[in-house]
């Protein structure tokens, strides 16, 4: 096992609020210690892109994803799920733990849970028709796509008649699991092949490592 560089870790904690030691984060996730350190290289770049405060703001999150300061309701929602402590910013531990869900090795159950929360915007434990409609209208408007209200209602009718098996007007967790198993393309976004190759993408982690013999 590697030895603990307490000074370097203490420095990282001061510089990056919420910083946890790579070995600790690796033990809680599908990432190896080296992969956590490679993710730290990515985190440093994103968290310093607007304000260099060691935390990722919503603006920095969107800038990293879209390479421009565009607003996207779906990205906002993902940010809210990454922001586990609900402080309006993402620290390094939040970042690693949330990205972990997108790791190819993580069980589908966890990915389905995350995707369910993504659409359950008011956290009632159900995906309600009004939430889906609200997100759909906002995204169509942001992307410049025009669909009549009649078409949107017809798409929602069809979706809910398929997904909402007990026809109570909302989709529960079991109905969602059943629906995505029949529509696997919906889960494509939940797996990031890049995460298997993170140490190659950010090789500089080796020079900044705070853990020996990784």
């Amino acid at each position: 096992m590697g030895c603990f560089h307490s000074t370097a870790t203490a420095r990282a904690r001061r510089r990056y609020p919420g910083y946890d030691h790579p070995m600790q984060l690796a033990s809680q996730t599908a990432f190896s210690v080296s992969e956590v350190e490679a993710l730290f290289e990515l985190f440093k770049t994103i968290s310093g892109s607007v304000v260099d405060d060691g935390l990722i703001s919503k603006e920095e999150f969107q800038l990293a994803l879209f390479k421009s300061k565009m607003d996207n309701i779906f990205a906002n929602r993902i940010f809210d799920l990454f922001d586990v402590k609900k402080r309006g910013v993402i620290d390094f531990a939040d970042f690693v733990q949330a990205l972990n869900v997108f790791h190819p090795s993580v069980p589908m159950e966890e990915k389905i849970d995350f995707s369910f929360k993504l659409y359950d915007m008011d956290n009632t434990g159900f995906i309600e028709r009004k939430e889906v409609k609200q997100m759909l209208i906002a995204l169509l408007s942001e992307s410049g796509m025009r669909l009549s209200d009649e078409t949107i209602e017809s798409i929602l009718d069809k979706t809910f008649s398929d997904a909402d098996v007990n026809q109570d007007g909302k989709i529960d967790r079991a109905e969602w699991e059943n629906f995505v198993s029949r529509n696997p393309s919906l889960m494509k976004i939940m797996t990031l092949p890049y995460l298997k190759d993170i140490t190659t993408t950010f090789p500089s982690f080796v020079f900044n490592s705070k853990v020996d013999d990784i």
Binding site: L42, I46, A64, L65, F66, K67, N72, I73, F74, A75, I78, L99, F102, Y119, V132, K133, M135, L136, L139, L140, E142, S143, M145, R146, L147, S148, T151, S154, I155, L156, K158, T159, D162, A163, N183, S185, L186, I189, L192, Y194, I198, T201
Partner: peptide
């Protein structure tokens, strides 16, 4: 309005298409 293929999508497929969100953006230059 809206082409036929769009109308044939379910609401969640349409959300995915309209958001064009892909977290791969984090790893791309």
């Amino acid at each position: 309005p809206g082409d036929k293929s769009t109308r044939q999508m379910n609401a969640f497929q349409l959300i995915g298409m309209a958001s064009s969100l892909d977290l791969s953006g984090f790893f791309e230059e």
